[in-house]
Design a protein around this nucleic acid. Structure first.
Lengths: 130, 130
DNA sequence: TCCTTATTGACATTCTATATCAATAAGGAT
DNA sequence: ATCCTTATTGATATAGAATGTCAATAAGGA
C-alpha cells in the first residue's frame, strides 16, 4: 500500500501544526473548511488517523471528551479544563517512572500510561469571578 | 428534589457492588435484565449517574472505551487491556503526589488527575501465546 | 386513601467516530 | 504527454455511548 500525497492530507497536517492548540477533529475540519469548503469530515478523520500512524502527529484521548490532536509527539502531561474542555500542556518537574512503582500489576503486561490532570483553565476562572 | 427509593435504583447499586469488575453500563443492564427484564437501559444510565452524584459508586472514564463503574470510591490507579478492554485495579507502591510535581500549570487550578495504564491482561497474553 | 411529583420505560436525538462505495486523482509505467 | 492501477476522496450510512423528551407509573408524605 503505497501512500500518495494529497492536498487534503497536507491541509490536515498543516492545520494541526499551525493551530498548536490540541484541536479536536471537528475544530480541524472547521479550520480547513474556511480554505477548502468541499473537504469531507470523513477525510479529515481518515487523515488524522493516518498521520498518527505515521507518527507525524499524536492522538490524545481525553476521557469523556472527543480525541484531540497534538503537533508534539513526545510524552508529556496534559490538563483538561472541566468547564470548557480546553487541553493544555503541563510541565512536570520530573515525571516519575510510574510503571516502576507498580506493586501488583495483576499479570498485566504494561505498555504505557495515560495521565491527564483535571482543573479549571485561566479563562474559566476569570469568568467565574465576574 | 426529594429522592425516592426505587427497586430499579436498588438493583443497579446491588449489581455494581456484587459484580466488582468495573462493569460498563451495558454489562450492568445485561445483568439486571436477567432478574428484571422490563428495566429500561435509560433507567440504568440515569441511576448510575445518580449513584455517582451521591458518592455511592464512582465513574471511571476510560479513554476510547465506554465508562465503567466502580464499587470502590477511593482514588486508585487502573489498567486497561488494549485488546479486550478489561479494566483492573492496579496497586502502586506509593502514588506520587503528581500535583506537587507540576512545574508550570499555565494558570490551571488543578483539582484532580486521571491515571490509566495501558497493557495486555493475563487472559489475552495467554491467548496470544497459543 | 389521596395527591404530588420523582421516576420509569419507550423512543428519539446527539455526538464521536468509523464503514461503505462509486467517483476521482496521484503518480509510476508506457 | 497518455494510459492504468489503485489509493484516496466525498457523500452517506452505520455503530456505539450516552442523554433528552414525555406520557404513564409509583413512592411516600399528608
Amino acid at each position: 500500500m503505497i501512500k500518495r500525497n494529497t492536498v487534503q492530507r497536507a491541509l490536515v497536517l498543516e492545520a494541526v501544526l499551525r493551530l498548536r492548540s490540541h484541536p479536536t477533529a471537528d475544530e480541524i475540519y472547521a479550520e480547513i473548511s474556511k480554505i477548502c469548503p468541499s473537504i469531507s469530515r470523513a477525510t479529515v478523520y481518515r487523515n488524522l488517523q493516518q498521520l498518527c500512524e505515521q507518527g507525524e502527529i499524536r492522538r490524545r484521548e481525553i476521557p469523556g471528551s472527543p480525541d484531540r490532536f497534538d503537533h508534539l509527539t513526545n510524552d508529556h502531561c496534559h490538563a483538561r479544563c472541566t468547564l470548557c474542555g480546553k487541553v493544555t500542556d503541563i510541565e512536570v518537574e520530573k515525571v516519575p517512572d510510574m510503571e516502576a512503582l507498580v506493586k501488583d500489576d495483576h499479570g498485566f503486561a504494561i505498555s504505557g500510561m495515560n495521565l491527564i490532570f483535571d482543573g479549571i483553565c485561566p479563562e474559566c476562572r476569570r469568568k467565574r469571578n465576574d
